[in-house]
Design a protein around this nucleic acid. Structure first.
Lengths: 135, 135
DNA sequence: GTAGTTGCAAACTTTTTGCTACCCA
DNA sequence: TGGGTAGCAAAAAGTTTGCAACTAC
């Protein structure tokens, strides 16, 4: 948090690689399982500690959409997500940021807006299909 | 969840009253403490169970903004929030819903959008003031 | 009367932390 | 070489659940 030196360890690098090479918005536990394939002795505590550090330094994003556990996103640039209410899958949305919303709030409120988060709760196509098949 | 009959118990009524008479977006634990002032024998499990039922039936909203615990909102109608990054206070925003954002996603994506959530991360006025005072 | 609900406590899940040994800069 | 970091395990924090007794409808 403070102005402490952060080191690049092999554990941190592996975690970052995993996150940058998936678009599944994984949980800490999934990342731990993947990391163990490369570093069998890595501990879950280390995964959590590094996810914390990487979030603080802005290299990844922490998401928590309705569930009791966090998900992580290797893309640190603000973007929007959709969450399927049936299957829980989190998807990146390729739509431009609506920065004007922040202006709207600042005008309304006098609070200083640093960023915003927007997510859409959906029934994804494949879950829609499954519902149709049932009938 | 299913088509089960739900009963109105005194515990549920008290919880609902508490939520409707605050704008602080409280945690389950805070609600429990308040409820105990009226019903000293109420248990935390009952609070959680009722918060779950009330959320399912759409009478309240569950929020979880970055923290490890949920907050609850007695206003079940979709509205936006701002969260102060310094003091953590959650505030209701009196701004109209941007339904057109949902259209944008449906066009982009073919998923069916049920609702969306938008929150703004801010430094609130009083925290801005405190920072100024330090200097 | 009876099925949904309660209080209690134990269990569960996810995340954090204390400690010693280790290793990156 | 020194201080940030790892591994391990225990603990914390938040939430869920099994069960017998109770109560709203």
């Amino acid at each position: 948090m403070e102005l402490v030196n952060k080191r690049m360890t092999k554990q941190k690098r592996v975690i970052l690689d995993i996150l940058r090479n998936t678009d599944t918005h994984p949980t800490a536990d999934w990342i731990y399982e993947q990391a163990r394939k490369v570093l069998p002795d890595i501990s879950l505590g280390t995964v959590y500690r590094n996810l914390g550090v990487l979030t603080e330094t802005g290299q990844i994003m922490e998401l928590n959409y309705g569930s009791s556990y966090s998900r992580y996103d290797g893309n640190p640039n603000n973007h929007y997500h959709s969450v399927c209410l049936k299957c829980g899958r989190v998807k990146d949305l390729e739509m431009p940021l609506h920065k004007e919303l922040e202006k709207e709030v600042e005008t309304l409120n006098c609070d200083k807006v640093l960023y915003h988060r927007l997510e859409f709760y959906v029934i994804c196509q494949s879950c829609q299909q499954k519902e149709k098949d049932k009938k």
